[in-house]
């Protein structure tokens, strides 16, 4: 474990806790993309299968359970909670997220470290996570005023993978870990998708004005 990875995990954990808090306290999921949340459930289920087959550490196991539980809980709130589901921007959240699942799976069948079920699903989860934020970013451009909690949620979510990139650089040089192109390239693509959001987020934070993405 290194500081970049710990910071990345904490940023990721904080993002999902912030989102859950927003939904629970405001009883609203306005501005949140259900499609992105559902893609994240698929990402976590596909990636954390080794939860049952390989024990790394208490921390590793607990965090995997937390990420699966929170992502499922958020989807439940947005789909079934009688008050919250009314606030879902159904008409704006129109990205057909099921379209990205087959290409990611096909790519995982073609490009992977090893052709086993666990490895292909793990690779699939990396490719899917790289594009999972797309519905949310598109919804943001359509949302009139983005509330602070939502902006902070997306910032932390983007920061987590950016910190993971630093973690991979650290491990490559310090632990002489071998190159893991699949993780690196997926992580780069994922972080790059946040580039313009980061720009507008930091600008709004500097000028102390409302976060606004150009349509």
């Amino acid at each position: 474990m290194n500081i970049f990875r710990l910071a990345g995990d904490m940023s990721h954990l904080l993002s999902v806790i912030l989102l859950l808090l927003k939904i629970r306290t405001t009883k609203s999921c306005a501005g949140i993309s259900l499609k992105t949340q559902e893609l994240y459930v698929v990402v976590f289920l596909a990636r954390y299968l080794n939860l049952f087959t390989r024990y790394y550490s208490f921390y590793n196991t607990v965090m995997k359970l937390v990420f699966i539980a929170t992502s499922v809980c958020i989807v439940w709130y947005m789909r079934f909670h009688k008050v919250v589901k009314q606030t879902y921007n159904k008409d704006l959240d129109t990205f057909r997220h099921y379209v990205v699942i087959p290409p990611c799976f096909l790519l995982a069948l073609l490009v992977h470290h090893e052709f086993t079920v666990m490895e292909v699903l793990w690779t699939f989860s990396l490719y899917l996570e790289a594009v999972a934020i797309l519905p949310q970013l598109i919804l943001l451009q359509r949302t009139r005023n983005i509330d602070n909690l939502t902006g902070n949620y997306i910032f932390l979510l983007g920061a987590y993978r950016a910190l993971y990139l630093l973690n991979w650089i650290y491990r490559f040089f310090m632990e002489k870990a071998q190159a893991r192109w699949i993780s690196w390239i997926s992580g780069l693509v994922q972080t790059a998708l946040y580039a313009d959001f980061f720009y507008y987020y930091i600008k709004s934070w500097k000028n102390n004005e409302k976060l606004k993405l150009p349509a």
Binding site: R5, R54, Y56, S57, N60, Y164, R171, R180
Partner: peptide, 10 residues
């Protein structure tokens, strides 16, 4: 085939 160390990551 030794497990990639990356698997200890989230």
């Amino acid at each position: 085939y030794q497990e990639l160390p990356v698997k200890d990551e989230l």
